[in-house]
Design a protein around this nucleic acid. Structure first.
Lengths: 198, 198
DNA sequence: CGTCTATTTGAATGTACTCAAAAGCGGTGG
DNA sequence: CCACCGCTTTTGAGTACATTCAAATAGACG
């Protein structure tokens, strides 16, 4: 991928400013990334795939979900601009994953292979450190999600979601939000009506 | 702590055999651990504590739980022999934690301070690597737990728990298992009756 | 404008919940 | 050894709320 910081300012800032890579390191890093477009409804990953790399989400949003035997879908989380997407477990174990990652809007991804990233990380200690910190933060987030799912009911989790992502209703459909809350679309529709009546 | 592999064979095996530390490294490591007894019902951690180290659970079992505003307790997981206990987030951020870790039986812990572990890990690369792998595995486990909580109902999760820990009913009380499943003790009692009638 | 999908609304059902009480169990002290 | 106490588990009855099945309405897209 070629340098042209105009079209991905956040990505540039992440590695240059926030993260402190010098010009040479950044150029080398950038050369390993590949731009990939994912149209709405297309899959970045499906269950059974082995994750071959990691992807920076520059534009658009995705849902990461798992499917129970009955066929019901459960959204683990949504991802938006400036997030990294992929199946963490499959990435590290090289085993087939269990997650689906689907574009909910037309997406632009910057993709880097596992091998390239591993090599770069070995050469650039800052990158290694960043990856570890990112892994840890992701762990905190997941543990907090587990707490949340266990301690809060669907309505509390809905209000929580809206608080964190005020524009969520403009970008994510009712049924996807319902699949995130693990309730039926009808129940979410009724919940919204109930909440708006206050 | 002094070397006497008889009383903690799994711990010794973990670092010597499985992990491959040499005599000198192991002795140095062991010197940093402190034996700590935790009587039944005592707390290793409570919400608000900053986790100052990590602890290897040599004997006994614990519950790690969070409390919702109403006062209801939700067990995130149980820990048994050969597990490490602590509040992962608090350990890394040095912020007050949100979890309670309570002994469900008389416990024996081998405790090491964050500072000692950090220093040792810097000196012994294998230890560093092991810690990272452990962190990753713990991440997989948490993500799988999140999936499980979202896709399975209380009965499925109960059967799952029994499958993984067949002796759980001998060691953990009905109310603690109910708090793990996020249902009322009455409901678990009825569920057991229903299951035994088949 | 018409078709297809998403959302809303209605009615009946089921399951876990709450409140309440009884039964079981373990430990302590007389 | 037995009686009592506290705590855990079981059982009962009524209630609340999300679900299911079903249909109507609204919105999106060609």
């Amino acid at each position: 991928m070629e340098a042209s910081s105009d079209i991905f300012p956040r990505f540039t800032e992440l590695f240059r400013t926030t993260f402190g890579l010098d010009e040479a390191e950044y150029t080398r890093l950038l050369a390993c990334f590949h731009r990939r477009l994912l149209p709405k409804k297309a899959y970045y990953l499906t269950a059974g795939d082995v994750t071959r790399g990691k992807a920076y989400l520059n534009k658009g949003c995705t849902r990461t979900y798992v499917v129970e035997e009955s066929g019901k879908e459960h959204v683990l989380f949504f991802s938006f601009e400036d997030w990294w997407v992929g199946d963490f477990q499959s990435y590290h174990t090289l085993q087939p994953g269990t997650q689906y990652v689907q574009a909910l809007e037309d997406c632009e991804l910057f993709w880097i292979s596992r091998d390239d990233f591993t090599r770069l990380a070995a050469e650039i200690p800052k990158l290694q450190a960043w990856d570890q910190v990112k892994g840890r933060k992701s762990m905190f987030a997941t543990l907090n999600r587990l707490s949340e799912v266990k301690t809060m009911n669907a309505e509390e989790r809905y209000l929580n979601l809206i608080e964190k992502h005020p524009a969520i209703n403009q970008r994510i459909s009712l049924q996807d939000i319902a699949a995130f809350l693990d309730i039926e679309p009808q129940s979410l529709s009724r919940m919204r009506k109930r909440l708006s009546e206050r």
